[in-house]
Design a protein around this nucleic acid. Structure first.
Lengths: 341, 341
DNA sequence: CTGAAAGCGCTTACAG
DNA sequence: CTGAAAGCGCTTACAG
């Protein structure tokens, strides 16, 4: 692999000039520029990344930390983030935290601090104060998606408002028997998104003077099968069946639709179902939902990071409290309708 | 951020001793070891990655290249690969090629050669000879999943055999009207997996003396909606409806099941449906399928890479032709049955 | 505009 | 077992 020295020799200039010509940061005579470019392409020269990083302290690489990747939300974030990063010449290093608590602390205490990343994008992860402080000391920005991180910039949809809006939509259609299919919080470093959405749901019920029932507040795992199972249980109960389901994800809503069909119930005539996400498949299944525009959120988060990184007077202590509430919209499709009374 | 020098000073030894003590590669007196460890943990010392790489030429980082990440197959590979890598102290740098041809060549000609990765895992991507040669010259192994790459190590299920087996299963149940829902090849650097599976399908038909029909060979995109649409079209045709569907993915099979139901057809009494993958949701929907054990494939591929990298006499020219045929199994669930004649 | 040289923070023969 | 020193391959003040 050709190094800068060989390029310099071939071009008949110094390595300093090669560096300047290729980076484009400093002026170089047209003649030198041409000679360097020719030599570089002839030798197939590519800047050694570690030398570049060691000399400049910049990595052109950001770390993305998420609890898992094999779920729609996460893979969608990843896809959008990578696309935005690569088009800016940045690499993306992925850390999934499937390994649990140990892996999580290994990532934060070692991987992120080795100086391989310039910044971190935390997806649906709640870093603690010490972890943020450590990044801060190194001058590394951390931006979060999916919840509020005290002491850092975050982007999140208003989960409480979304839960409330979804429920109000059902109430406005005359429903009073409304169940909420939510999610579990598995670790102490995940956001309480299920709790916030449920709180919005309960608030909407209370405002409308509708009594809430414990039995109608059930747990799923955001997947189609879990939505199916929970909905079948709820809708199959002969004495206690709700007429409407508010699901925390479109996948669970899709599962619920299938469960209703299998019970011989018509959607939306017999049961109304609303999700959250605006998943790729939502339109196809006609799911009424609340948008999250996940790709756009991820792209925005990456741009925020890139902007911070290109700020010339970014010192240490770069992270500040700042939450951007991401707009959500209700999209009414064909799975919700006036209650059949 | 404390450097090795500060640790050396605090421990009262040279930087060489610190390096040796921390890496554990060379013997160090118990006393020095203790002093270094204490000093390092006191200062929160973490080895600078770029300095380590520049000095050693090793990155402890591998690049994963895939056409996209927001599909089950890819996110599952990614999840498994990351889990295996991180537990070996390796990072994973993700390159998705959603940006098309330009992005692809940028990745291969620039990103991969900057020396940031020690090896590459190519997922469902067909690098060309020059690209492999370039990696070879740098002594970087490339291992592929999802198809055969001439000149590199690969792991792939036998797509032809899988297509044949799926079709034979349907034939053995008495079906003769069998459609194949396959996928499109969008770029010239993707594998011809749809073609291979279809060839297996056609071979099985031929062996059984069953005539194949153009109209029963249709395209999808591996997703639930595309399976639904294609199946509805096929099964709704009053003169030409097949009695069995062989789908190239379980998601398409699930879509097909839903389409059949919506047409009032019973699965498997009226239509038999088989997929490929053994997707997370396959068991739930009772899909008869052919396993791919994707996670295990990805883990195996990563281990292959790690083994190569730890081989002390790995020089340049590390890539050789070598394909491992990954075993597949037929799992008969409840979506296939004897033809209703 | 350009070059010589220091420096980024490690690792590792080489001596001892 | 340990230290002094060279070297990894760049970038960037500093002079000119």
């Amino acid at each position: 692999m050709a190094g800068i020295e060989e390029v310099a020799k071939l071009a008949g200039v110094s390595t300093a000039t090669v560096s300047r010509a290729l980076s484009g940061k400093d002026h170089v005579s047209a003649k030198a520029l041409a000679a360097v470019q020719l030599a570089a392409s002839e030798l197939g020269y590519v800047v050694s990344h570690s030398a570049y990083t060691l000399a400049t302290g910049r990595n052109r690489n950001i770390g993305v930390v998420m609890p898992r990747v094999d779920r729609w939300f996460f893979s969608t974030v990843l896809e959008a983030a990578e696309t935005e990063l690569i088009s800016n010449g940045y690499d993306l290093t992925l850390y999934n935290l499937r390994g649990g608590d140990n892996q999580r602390s290994q990532v934060f205490q070692e991987f992120l601090l080795r100086g391989r990343v310039d910044a971190v994008l935390a997806v649906a992860i709640q870093p603690d104060k010490d972890e943020i402080a450590a990044l801060d000391r190194l001058g590394k920005p951390i931006v979060g998606i999916g919840g509020i991180i005290p002491g850092a910039r975050t982007i999140e949809m208003d989960d409480f408002a979304a839960g409330k809006l979804a429920t109000e939509h059902l109430i406005s259609l005359g429903h009073t028997k409304i169940a909420n299919l939510s999610g579990e919080i598995l670790t102490n470093w995940e956001f309480n998104q299920p709790g916030l959405r449920r709180a919005g749901y309960l608030e909407a019920l209370k405002n409308a003077g509708i009594e809430s029932k414990e039995a109608w507040q059930v747990m799923g795992d955001y997947s189609i099968p879990s939505g199916y199972r929970a909905a079948k249980q709820l809708l199959g109960d002969p004495r206690n069946a709700p007429t409407a389901l508010f699901c925390n994800s479109d996948e669970m809503a899709i599962g619920a639709i299938l469960a209703a069909k299998d019970l011989g119930l018509r959607v939306p005539q017999d049961v109304s179902i609303i999700g959250i996400d605006d998943h790729d498949f939502a339109e196809f299944f006609g799911v009424t939902t609340i948008t999250q525009t996940v790709s756009a959120q991820a792209t925005f988060a990456v741009r925020t990071i890139l902007d911070l990184l290109s700020d010339p007077d970014l010192g240490s202590h770069v992270n500040v409290d700042q939450n951007t509430v991401w707009p959500s919209e209700l999209i009414v499709r064909s799975t919700t309708a006036r209650v059949n009374s």
